[in-house]
Design a protein around this nucleic acid. Sequence first.
DNA 1: CGCACTATATATAATCT
DNA 2: TAGATTATATATAGTGC
Lengths: 203, 203
Amino acid sequence: MATKVKKQSLGRQKIEIKKIENKSSLEVTFTKRRKGLFNKASELCILTGAEAAVIAFSPGKKAFAFGFPSVDTVIDRYISENTEEGRSVNTSASHHRVVQESRKQYAEALAKKEEEKKRVETMKEGGTVGFGRDRFWWDLSIEDMGLEELERYVASMEELKKNLELGLMSWRRQATLHPDSWIWIPASTQRVLIDIYESICMN
Amino acid sequence: MATKVKKQSLGRQKIEIKKIENKSSLEVTFTKRRKGLFNKASELCILTGAEAAVIAFSPGKKAFAFGFPSVDTVIDRYISENTEEGRSVNTSASHHRVVQESRKQYAEALAKKEEEKKRVETMKEGGTVGFGRDRFWWDLSIEDMGLEELERYVASMEELKKNLELGLMSWRRQATLHPDSWIWIPASTQRVLIDIYESICMN
DNA sequence: CGCACTATATATAATCT
DNA sequence: TAGATTATATATAGTGC
């Protein structure tokens, strides 16, 4: 009894909120946390009906964004609330709140970071970061990943056809295997698309 | 011994990711999650040196934003990357990725939201999907859209149709699929659609 | 409202493949 | 490296002030 079981992993470890120096783990962290951040934003929108946008530039300076209803919608509204056109007392107040929030949040994050570290030096790390030596997956252009993507597309289509014959359920199971490559579209949208397809074919 | 200690709280409960109906708890949730979201964004920036911005409009339509180095800095960069000025092949690719990310994330969230429900209902059909008889989740989610959103959605689809008729292909295979359900669309196809969709939104 | 607290749901650092 | 896996750090739902 009491067999000693060796832990297979240390599990999640506590980390300090400060600039990650190791380049590769920095990339991994960015990818993971970006995903988590976007997911949180999605949930916020769904749960509360809020409209929100998240824009993030990776260490490699590539843009990623999430927005509901769309990035542009949110940005447009944000901008319009903060420019002359609607600059009444109210919107001005709104603007102040926004900016304040922004500063406050970041300040709090910084404070938290320093709290743990009990040190301030991290604040002034050199500005140059030295990215861009290698190309990572998010740096690849669409053209670059075209071939692989295309192959998967064709293979997927074959699978899709096969599975559709068996029913939506089996298809779903198959699709779950590679969730990151797919997107859901609603039936109504699809009908429109098919409608379009037909009109194209008739020409 | 074994004094029975009554739990002081149920603790965090699992919730479905769907619109919260109770207005006050919705507001509380917005506040809590907004805080969490902004904090996550802060950490991402600090840990990876990424530049990011988060903008959120509360259910009460108040604006909140976080940005590093500043909201405007990030928005400006985002906009400049996605407008005529730098619209080369490369920026176009960047644009694609950005929008794709946006759509994908939301779609995934929606998919996740209804995952359980859908599974149950699909199971009930025993492999044969009963189209048209009952109302499934993909129908409900459309109905859950607000009127304004729905109108915008429909309008977008109309525009999409117009644009597709101008000669977008890569789509033909899709059209052979069964029209009465949500389907998965591969990322490559999605890019084409998104390109169109964006051209619509940008007017 | 905003804040505090508890207990549990999630996110994710480390590791391995 | 893009995924899994695992164990632990965090976020947060429910509740009370």
